[in-house]
């Protein structure tokens, strides 16, 4: 077993007016590949954003340890510098900032990635080629007017550039056509091979997992972890769906009916 990289224990969190996560535990060892599955509204994306430190969510209980340190109170930029990366499901548009300027900035923040402009240009060019991304994109404003597939490729570009210790991929496969899916999958593989970083893949679709060697699978329903198992669990879910997990979680919810605003059903995300 590899050394512990991420340790989420008894984590509860939500927005100002709505609790979403209820006592979630999740442990990821260095270099491991974990898959987080669950039906729509289970709280998977929320968990990803809370691990990243998104200020839109408030932690109400539990803690997050990363690389041996408690990061529960750390701001998102500090967590990023510590080696956590979250690939957004819907990357935010940032008008006025050319992609290239942005990439250069986020690399220069990190002593281990600081380099000369020339070398940087070469690196970015090589990764862009690998992702079959036209270099013309580098001059365009960050995510502004990009298609869904282009935005995801640019998230992969940042993943390969920043070489984080832990990458959380939030539904990176959603809305991609077959070609784009192939390119993104190759990007993820490249990250595993070149960087050797740990991975949490959030998905409710097993297609993207076909090329990955998965260490553990976690199932989340109604803001709770309801099952954990080996890679084989994926095939089981693929065949039988989430129904049996949902039934189990439903009973749980009945038991905590007094908990105000508890998302009994549906859209917790």
């Amino acid at each position: 077993m590899s050394t512990q990289l991420l340790n989420v224990s008894a984590l509860s969190a939500g927005t100002e007016d709505k609790p979403i996560l209820h006592g979630v535990d999740l442990a990821v060892g260095a270099g491991e590949c974990h898959v987080l599955m669950g039906p729509n509204g289970a709280g998977k994306s929320t968990l990803g954003h809370v691990i990243m430190g998104d200020p839109a969510y408030r932690v109400t209980g539990g803690r997050i340890e990363f690389d041996g340190a408690d990061v529960t109170e750390l701001s998102a930029d500090k967590r990023s510098l510590a080696g956590i990366f979250l690939s957004y499901q819907a990357p935010v548009e940032v008008p006025g900032v050319p992609l290239y300027s942005f990439l250069r900035s986020i690399c220069q923040m990190r002593p281990e990635l600081k380099t000369t402009a020339r070398k940087f240009r070469e690196r970015v060019g090589a990764i862009a080629d690998q992702l079959e991304l036209d270099q013309g994109f580098l001059m365009r404003e960050l995510n502004v007017g990009f298609s869904g597939g282009e935005k995801k490729k640019i998230e992969m570009l940042q993943l390969l550039l920043l070489q984080p210790k832990l990458a959380i991929l939030d539904e990176t496969d959603s809305g991609l056509d077959v070609d784009a899916l192939g390119i993104v999958s190759r990007g993820i593989q490249a990250y595993r091979e070149q960087v050797g970083g740990a991975l949490i893949v959030i998905t409710h679709n097993t297609r993207i997992l076909e090329r990955l060697e998965v260490d553990r699978t976690h199932v989340m329903v109604h803001g709770r972890m309801v099952a954990e198992g080996p890679a084989e669990l994926i095939a089981d879910i693929d065949k039988n769906g989430f129904e049996r997990f949902e039934r189990g979680a439903g009973q749980d919810d009945a038991a905590c009916a007094e908990c105000p605003g508890c998302p009994m059903v549906g859209d917790a995300e």
Partner: peptide, 27 residues
């Protein structure tokens, strides 16, 4: 939303504001 996204890539508010100015000259 922009601040949260930029923070997830390691940029604090100050870094983000500086980026906006610098990006303009680079553009």
């Amino acid at each position: 939303e922009q601040l949260a996204f930029l923070a997830s890539r390691g940029l604090s508010r100050e870094d983000a504001e500086e980026l906006f100015v610098r990006a303009l000259y680079e553009d």
